[in-house]
Design a protein around this nucleic acid. Structure first.
Lengths: 280, 280
DNA sequence: TTATGTGAACATCTTCACAGCG
DNA sequence: CGCTGTGAAGATGTTCACATAA
């Protein structure tokens, strides 16, 4: 699968100006269809992060930020941040910085957060519960409106305020509630089957938590969250680290005992998926 | 893109050291320290996926696979898969394919799965429970050996067989049980604080589920799993889709009703984080 | 003078296409 | 021949560095 053919088009971005950047060089074929919506995939992911940081600033009544400040808070370098923001337009003021409120608005617009996306969660186990209780994911815009499972004991039982339906009803319920995003939190076994049903029900975006590679038609977008893979990547780094650094010093390494953390208090966004309240 | 592997890394993303002989072209300066362990970050993530697919094949008693078959099952193209495998060595047989068992062994070795990584989960809410019950994540190698929270009512209560400790005990308990990976499943508020403690306790790899950008010293590796971000990325695609395709047809799209899915039964790996058993 | 916005250099990742081993 | 392994071409993504606007 990998992808639709399209996705990330070339990066000429905002049309406007000069029609053709370097027409020279016979080789480079000037692109097929040149749509303007060309925001690098990687930049989209970061915009979401900037948005969260900005929301935090907004709550703390901070009205202006420089690319440098925002960058540090988001954990990226400022040049990258500026370039990312440039993809959505020029909303900064040279010599000053960006207006928090403006940026929030523009990023939300770009990410399509101005319109709601109704979410269906399939598989009401531990994770499913967590998702259901998430209650309209952080930053709003993602109300969970349908829950599915196949355990008879769960049918009709409300979780996070929404009654659980049987996965056989996916087509009907998803259509009725106009679900646009499906979150698959089932065991690996049933995932592909559930996915197929969602697709047949017209759902075009899927968040997959099951440890399987879903096969979908190209018009469907799948994002996967795979704990095992994340763990193994960390494992790789642990392994690499221990073999590169023959050190075995147990005490503390160079530098202060307390890890540096410039702006640790900037963010907000609260509760991830839990009920625990950590107040250190 | 559909189903990426990567997922925005955190922090600075230590340059991966290009390595490689590439002596051609006068321009390229041979580079400073040229460590051999140069497996592209992106490839590491995919190796974990290949591993899962291979495990599935192994269980079904399949002993040999071609790059093409494996590629389809993993959702990547075969050239990429071959290149990825080439980073860990040449274990295929031209004209034939790869031996499943051999590949599994080599990938496990590369990912450092031959040695266990003890995991600590901090924040025993819905997600924390899910993680705790995960019981030694899929593909083994990741036993959860410590749980932390600050709710007095949870202290000592065993979850998934492990008693919950207070986050103040992170240093002691992590040291005693030799924790190498910390999974932060707390609300945003306490995340940075918990992270700092883990780092001080010597944990060098962190899986962060809290919606915050953690600030850590560079020797610490952070991977983040951010639901809100994933949702927003999907939202972006939903939005883009609807504005590019002025269609509003509600009925079914072209093609068969059932989505194509070549090898949907190849994978195994079971239960993601739930208790639900889907058997369609 | 400060900090944005961006062309261009650089680095990383992906895909092609084919040499060459079995 | 079939399929792996890989150099080299092509994309994408990141960083630099500076012209430019307020």
């Amino acid at each position: 699968m990998t992808a639709h053919g399209d996705d990330v088009r070339d990066g000429d971005a905002h049309a406007g100006t000069a029609a053709d950047p370097q027409s020279s060089d016979g080789v480079s074929i000037p692109e097929p269809q040149d749509r303007a919506r060309a925001i690098p995939e990687a930049a989209v992911a970061r915009l979401a992060v900037y948005l969260r940081v900005l929301s935090g600033l907004d709550e703390r009544e901070v009205h202006t930020v420089s690319s440098e400040e925002l960058a540090v808070a988001a954990g990226v370098n400022s040049a990258k941040l500026r370039k990312d923001l440039s993809y959505i337009g020029s909303y900064g003021t040279r010599g000053v910085g960006y207006e928090v409120a403006v940026l929030i608005g523009q990023i939300e617009r770009t990410l399509g957060l101005t319109q709601q996306n109704r979410v269906a969660v399939i598989g009401i186990g531990n994770l499913g519960h967590a998702l259901a209780n998430y209650g309209g994911f952080p930053s709003r815009g993602f109300p969970v409106t349908a829950l599915f499972d196949l355990d008879p004991d769960l049918m009709g039982v409300p979780v996070g305020g929404i009654p659980v339906d049987h996965i056989d009803d996916i087509p009907r319920v998803c259509a009725e509630r106009d679900v646009t995003i499906g979150a698959i939190a089932t065991p690996a076994k049933g995932a592909q089957e559930v996915c197929d049903r969602l697709v047949r029900a017209g759902v075009r975006c899927i968040l997959n938590f099951a440890p399987v590679v879903l096969q979908v038609p190209e018009e469907v977008e799948v994002r996967k969250v795979d704990l095992a893979v994340e763990m193994q990547i960390l494992s790789f780094h642990v392994a690499r680290r221990s073999q590169e650094a023959p050190e075995s010093t147990d005490s503390e390494d160079t530098g202060a005992g307390a890890p540096q953390s410039e702006n640790r208090d900037v963010n907000t966004g609260d509760n991830p998926v839990d009920g625990m309240v950590v107040r250190p």
